[in-house]
Every structure is written in C-alpha cells, then in structure tokens.
Design a protein around this nucleic acid. Structure first.
Length: 206
DNA sequence: AAGAGGATGAACT
DNA sequence: GTTCATCCTCTTG
C-alpha cells in the first residue's frame, strides 16, 4: 500500500474552494473502515461554495443539524444521504464559519479491490465500482453516520494523501456541475473537474 | 404531524 | 432514454 504524504490541515484552509477542488484531482482518498484498507485516485470532484452558491446545502449560510459540519474548519467529512439511498462524501474546506465543501464524484480504485467489489456486490472488476458519488462511498464503506469525522488526525479512518500522481493540465477538464439544475444562475458555474478519458469518471447526462 | 423532494444508480426497453 | 427504488431532512400547518 504505497504510502504517500498525508494532506494536512493547511491544505484545506484556503477560501478558494474551486482551487482546492482542482488540486484534489490526482490525490488519493483512503478509508480504513471495519479493518479494511481501501483507496482510490480522485478523478472527478465538484466545489460547493456557500453562502452564495444556491446548489449548496448551506446556501445563504443556512445552519441546520445536517449542514452544521460544513461550518467547521476545513478537513472534516460531510457525508449525507441523497434520494434516500446514496451516501455522498464531501470534504469541508476553508476556516471555521465558512461553509465550503468539495464533493468527490469518482475514484480510480487502487487498494482493497476485493473488499470494494464485495461492498458493491460485483463478482468481477467493473468501472462502476467507484463511478459516481454514491458508488464510491459504498465501495469505501463511507456512511452518513461518519459525517463530521476529521481527515486530519493521525488516527483518522478516512484521509487523503499525495502519492505524486500528476496529470497534464490539458487533461483536467472543467465543466458545470451535475444534477444542480435547480440552482438557477449557479447551475452553470464551471466548478466540476475531471480527468480526460478516464474510464471511472461518471457519465454526464446530456 | 405530515408531506415534498433531493449534489443518484441500476435495471429496464 | 425511461423508470423507480427508498428515506432523511426540512418546511409547513
């Protein structure tokens, strides 16, 4: 399992969540859940920038029991349930009080393939193992009950690291976000980044 | 107390 | 391309 350099608290404190989002492409997301080590390269992610972003759950600095963790300082996990079925994993960014977050939308799997296949009920390796935010959360064993967990502490069960993976900037594509059509003028903001020609990037609805 | 709807994915045709 | 599974959170009364 090829140790990399853990992303520390400084990485997540910038108020430029779009830049952080772009920098996360190529970083590795690791989880150690139920004693299983699993990881994958982040190949698709989206930035959410409250208070002005209508697509964010914390739009207009709305504070509820669910969104409260988004106001914590950068480096915490925000995991919530979507459509009653899917657990979606985000990293909170910016200093405390600023509710920015990055949604991880797709991974290229690295470690723990067997476990991930089992969690996804696959008998052979298919790209859909970690394609799409709900899929990757299932593959890594991430659940809404883990929302608020720190990714920074040494004992963290969820964290990110840099293993020196780099993509040419021409291979990092920037587009509008997926599934946020309700967000009016914010819907077309190009805050989604993904790796060109990567098979694990989720399909875009045309 | 009740109801609507959502940062989706899978299995269909 | 279409349908639908499925349930938590927030809003309203």
């Amino acid at each position: 399992m090829n140790e990399g350099i853990r992303l520390d608290t400084d990485f997540f404190q910038s108020t430029d969540v779009v830049s952080i989002c772009k920098k996360l492409i190529g970083k590795v997301l690791v989880s150690i859940i139920d004693n299983h080590y699993t990881s994958g390269i982040i190949v698709e992610a989206e930035a959410y920038r409250a208070p002005e972003d209508k697509a964010s759950h914390a739009y207009n600095n709305r504070r509820t029991a669910r969104t409260e963790v988004m106001f914590q300082e950068g480096g915490h996990a925000y995991i919530y349930l979507c459509y009653g079925i899917h657990h979606l994993f985000n990293v909170v960014t910016a200093p405390a009080g600023i509710a920015h977050a990055v949604l991880i939308r797709a991974l290229e799997p690295l470690d723990g393939l067997e476990i991930m296949m089992e969690r996804r009920s696959l008998c052979k390796l298919e790209t859909r193992i970690t394609k799409g935010p709900g899929s990757l959360a299932t593959a890594l064993g991430l659940r809404t009950s883990m929302t608020g967990e720190s990714l920074i502490q040494k004992k963290s069960k969820i964290y990110m690291e840099d293993r020196g993976i780099k993509y040419p900037s021409s291979d990092i594509i920037q587009t509008p976000r997926i599934g946020v059509g309700y967000a009016e003028e914010c819907a077309h903001w190009p805050w989604r980044f993904y790796v060109k020609n990567n098979n694990y990037v989720s399909a875009t609805k045309s």
